[in-house]
Design a protein around this nucleic acid. Structure first.
Lengths: 225, 225
DNA sequence: CTATGTTTAAAACACCTGTTTTTTTGGAGG
DNA sequence: CCTCCAAAAAAACAGGTGTTTTAAACATAG
């Protein structure tokens, strides 16, 4: 066996188990026993469980960040300062996202981690991601801004996050949704199929008409927080 | 103190903590100590932690289910067999969702609980919800079906869940998004404001053109699962 | 070969988990 | 008064958690 075969086996197993059961519900003993590796190996090689989770995370985000940067480089070179159409930008992002975990079937882990990063209340994971990979996202949103000049900044911000919610929710809860879909319709969906379905929806959502101006009157559904 | 003040205090504390940290990350000792209630009270009054989680859900879903049924009754009576417009259906749902947790500021809790129910892999919560409240959802989707007759069933199913993801992600992670939004734009958004922004986006997403038919060729982005 | 430093293995550690059992409390009805 | 019983409190239980320590195996350089 190779020198750091243990590290790889831990990462691969953790990857699968995190996706199946979540982070808190997956114990180190679960991981190490399934990976046929000693329990102490995790703390030896990674330092802590939290660091293991980040390592699993980096294995997705590092290649994604790199590939997405070069993909955007190519796009910008091709369009030479002209605004890149929204469809092209979205397509590029989808392609890059799907290309990263193509070898494993663990797009779900990627999405779940992303979802966690946002939903974690104290938000230290969010800040870590923002700090580590924020520049790619900033670059992307800037290109989206040029592609949709008619959209107010705040509106674009929210719509992008609306769509982020759609993608994260759908792909991270894919197994659950697949169960429901399989019961009602016979169809067995693939991720490719889902992306095909997402495309027109996202484009239409981004290009939706602007919301009506705010009314002053309270129509009976006030909500404090 | 009233007789079952303990029960209420447990429920109130539990749903705040569940929403903040998730189910697995929230211990009974966390709940009982913050609620200033004895640890054994949870198992005494609810039977188990799992039953407590379901009780927290019921406190939101029972009133929601009831109100939504009567709201749909009124709509059906008014439209007398004619298809109810999609905008009206969505507006009714939004109104009902916002009406339920109006007394507390816990729409976030509600949304986060729903999101957790979907993302929890083992899915016992999801099955409980489907079993307990499936009929309201089925009734609603049936009305949506009549409102969008041109949409294939599977397509409508997925688009409804896309939008569910948008709403759950946005409202459950509202604090995080508000933080980001407040930093980049000065604006301080309210839930009302967000619903106003969501409306045209959701409508446009549901009415988006159908996706292109599947191509046979592999364009280099195959994805196993 | 012997030393050296890295990786694995086994055991122990301190703590936290949900649940159960035992004990005490505090009012009702007879 | 006293019994009775639901509710609360305190304590114990059995098992699981992440992490650390101690000991053995291993490969590699001198």
């Amino acid at each position: 066996m190779a020198q750091s075969d243990t590290v790889t086996r831990i990462l691969d197993t953790a990857d699968v188990l995190f996706a199946e059961r979540g982070f808190a519900e997956t114990s180190l003993r679960n991981i190490t026993s399934k990976a046929r590796v000693n329990l102490a190996a995790v703390n030896y090689h990674f330092g802590s469980k939290k660091a293991l989770i980040q390592a699993v995370f980096s294995r997705y985000l590092d290649p994604f960040s790199e590939r997405f940067h070069t993909a955007l480089d190519e796009l910008e070179a091709h369009y030479q300062g002209q605004p890149i159409p929204l469809e092209v930008l979205l397509e590029t992002m989808a392609t890059t996202v799907l290309a990263v975990p193509a070898e494993r079937n663990s797009l779900k882990v990627f999405m779940r981690l992303l979802g966690l990063a946002y939903s974690q209340a104290q938000g230290h994971l969010r800040r870590y991601i923002q700090q580590q990979y924020g520049d790619v996202f900033t670059r992307f949103t800037e290109l989206v801004r040029k592609a949709t000049p008619e959209l107010p900044d705040a509106e674009r911000f929210w719509r992008l996050h609306f769509m982020l919610g759609t993608v994260i929710f759908t792909l991270s809860g894919l197994d659950a949704l697949r169960d429901i879909a399989a019961k009602d319709y016979q169809e067995q969906v693939t991720v490719r199929d889902l992306v095909r379905r997402l495309r027109p929806v996202v484009v239409a959502a981004m290009n939706a008409p602007l919301p009506a101006a705010v009314e002053e009157g309270n129509h009976g559904n006030a909500q404090a927080s």
